[in-house]
Nucleic acid binder design. Structure first.
Lengths: 213, 213, 213, 213
DNA sequence: TATGAATGAGCTTTCATTCAT
DNA sequence: TATGAATGAAAGCTCATTCAT
């Protein structure tokens, strides 16, 4: 890891190794405890910095949390955007690529992935509002990007394309949640990627039969 | 509401009217704040009882939270079980019935519904584990019940029935989440039930076309 | 002292001896340090109670400070009101009585007096506003009371009575401040009351010559 | 303003424009918050200098505060001294001149005046002692100067001159405090100088009648 | 001169829980 | 059953001051 954080807060001219410690400590403590229960004490202890320094860089716990969420969401999206082939006109191909990419990112940046998962489930009223606003914008944007080049003609004339796409989307979400649940305890590098992919392909097969000409 | 709580903790033989106050206060405070941020002070104030009494009935905040979750989950399931026609062999009919029933329950017991929704999104490490274990058991059980009488012969021979059922399930989940999001701010009694049902029926139509003979 | 505090917060049914400790600790710490610098830590340590208890009785440091100010101002006024002969029509007699009374109160309740002096000099923006509002009301009220029975006919026709009264008032204030300054370090019971009074009488003599017929 | 500060700390040979920024920032922050609550962070931010630089010039917050008080008190006195006609033998003429001058200084240097007012009301134990010692010295000195040329023969033989002068002094102080209170919210340039002066003259008239032959 | 990162003790306040009554 | 006084650890955050550069 490491590579994640080093670029995050270059605006604060801070010793990169120390930034790394702070970011990783925060990721760890926030993902394990959620926003409210995560204690700045735990973060500074883990990061081996003083109380004051944390609040020198981030004006509040909320600021730290939201900054991290934002920076990491952006980083995550960036990584996805730059490697997905957006010219592809088959929605299943695009979604399959994204699944693969999340896989890769999860391998390389497990803390980031854990943290972002926690962020998007956060319910604490102090931050959930802001998080949700960003989440919606992000989803809307990726949807636009995702379907910009989709070839609608591949769908049967008899089906409602919008609704079909919703079903496809929910199916991919469902598979994602299910795998996360299923492999929660499995270390990243022992995940059987092939097995997971072959299951996804099975679902893709069913959905194509249902909705494609 | 009232009707919900009166039967919940008969083992403690509390004055039913007081139990009612406690349960409603706890539901309100927990759903508005989440487990961690909810304060026992706020609960006793709302319930107009003393601090000591709360801890006389429930040995800790965690106990109160988990007891409530358990009792209300059970109550919820009970209500569903007793009114769904489990002899029905068409999975869509059963799911449609459940959607309708949730609707009814939401109207009659809005606090309970809010609370249970909050419970199943709770991420606090102190309770999430226990909650998740129960949730899984509950889902597994209802799945068994749900599919006990399903007539598999209605499905096309060419499709994988298990996977099709998953897709159906995820689609219903997806619709549920979407509606919740969409009608978050709308008071229960102003929801346009017909509109929602007609959308559900449209999805059922698509899924039937895809998976049924 | 003790006698001061025992009646202050009877609404909180608190052990009177403990209330006494809290009130005296707060008076001491607040008068020695001013509002801002006074630390609740110092107060609870001095009062030998736990941190939590202070905030059980008073919802904030500000609440504690303002409650004390209010209760003690009232107590102070009460003591003055009940012992000054308000039927007296000579303004100098009334003012002389008040000076004497302050003297007595200062002897009996030195902490209270110190505290109230500190309160009415407080400049901290968090409390000064509220304090000033009360101070003005209090001054207005005592002025009304003070001059209700004053016989204006005692004044020379040639002088502006309102302005004369102002001068008298400022002179008494000035003497008060001066004596406070002068005897700051002198223990209460060693103050030479006769000396102070004879000086006051000298001033009264001058003012009478100036303004009375 | 500007003009005030440029000469204050030449011993430190700072860039005058920077000194200006520091002095004005400190005046602003100290007068708005009092000694204790004023934060050096706020000062350096307002002055657009670094934390370290402030502590390079002033060895502590206390040093900064006391230096400013001292320099500005001196400056204030200097301005008064150089423009009052100390040959004048009528005490009322001299006092009237001083009132007018304070008026002028308040117009030209509002921050300085605010700051000095705040300084002489400061109660914080860390600085109040030192401030008071200076204040007393200053008052004693100005008294000496003030009464050096006063013609005692103007007073009636029958009155105690020392005490009369005290009354005069307290009356001027009282008027000052009252006007400050009364015109607290009024911008400097909208003060009705004539009105204030005519009131002062009315008091002077009364006092002359009382004490002068 | 000038910077601002770094410190850590200190602050007020909250909280679940206990216990004498 | 029922009360609410009492606890004290822990929370987020501030602050004057120092120091390597």
């Amino acid at each position: 890891m490491g590579g994640v954080s080093k670029l995050l807060f270059k605006s604060l001219n801070i010793d990169p190794e120390k930034e790394d410690r702070i970011v990783n400590a925060a990721l760890k403590v926030f993902s394990q405890n959620g926003y409210q229960k995560a204690s700045t004490n735990a973060i500074v202890k883990e990061a081996k910095i003083s109380k004051g320094l944390l609040f020198h860089y981030f004006k509040s716990k909320k600021d730290l949390y939201l900054s991290l969420s934002e920076q990491l969401s952006d980083l995550f999206l960036e990584k996805i955007y730059e490697r997905v082939d957006w010219e592809e006109s088959d929605i299943f191909c695009v979604l399959r690529q994204i699944v693969l990419l999340k896989f890769e990112l999860f391998k390389v940046y497990p803390e980031m992935t854990d943290f972002l998962n926690a962020v998007y489930q956060e319910t604490d009223s102090e931050v959930a509002g802001e998080i949700n606003r960003k989440k919606e914008k992000l989803i809307a944007e990726s949807f636009r990007k995702l379907f910009a080049n989709i070839d609608v003609n591949k769908f049967k004339e008899s089906v409602d394309v919008q609704k079909s796409i919703k079903i496809i989307h929910w199916t991919f979400e469902g598979m994602g949640r299910r795998n996360q649940e299923r492999y929660k305890e499995v270390p990243v590098d022992q995940l059987d990627k092939e097995e997971i992919l072959s299951e996804i392909d099975a679902y893709i097969h069913i959905l194509k039969q249902s909705f494609y000409k």
